[in-house]
């Protein structure tokens, strides 16, 4: 399984701060498409994906046991 962490607007849209997904083998780009269908998240185009606390590229592939996070545009500081 892959743990998907949700923050900010995604957390509010989903009503939870994390979900388990069974999508090992998808690329980051494919994950985004899947999330759009599955969760109807808006604004995923501007959102980065982190894999195990590191920003991922669109072509990186998800592995079982990964911790994935949706990182919408940040606004700290």
């Amino acid at each position: 399984m892959i743990r998907l962490l949700l923050f900010a607007e995604f957390q509010e849209q989903a009503g939870t701060d994390q979900v388990e997904i069974d999508q090992a083998g998808l690329t980051v780009a494919e994950l985004k498409s899947w999330l759009k269908q599955e969760y109807r998240f808006t604004s995923l185009d501007q959102t980065m994906i982190a894999i195990n606390e590191t920003y991922a590229n669109e072509t990186d592939v998800l592995k079982d046991g990964d911790v994935i996070a949706l990182i919408p545009p940040v606004s700290g500081g």
Binding site: F7, A8, A50, A69, I71, P72, V74, S75, G76, G77
Partner: peptide
């Protein structure tokens, strides 16, 4: 450092 915080650190403001 402040510019970089606003670019790469996963913190969000509501």
């Amino acid at each position: 450092a402040m510019e970089r915080i606003k670019q790469i650190v996963p913190i969000w403001k509501k």
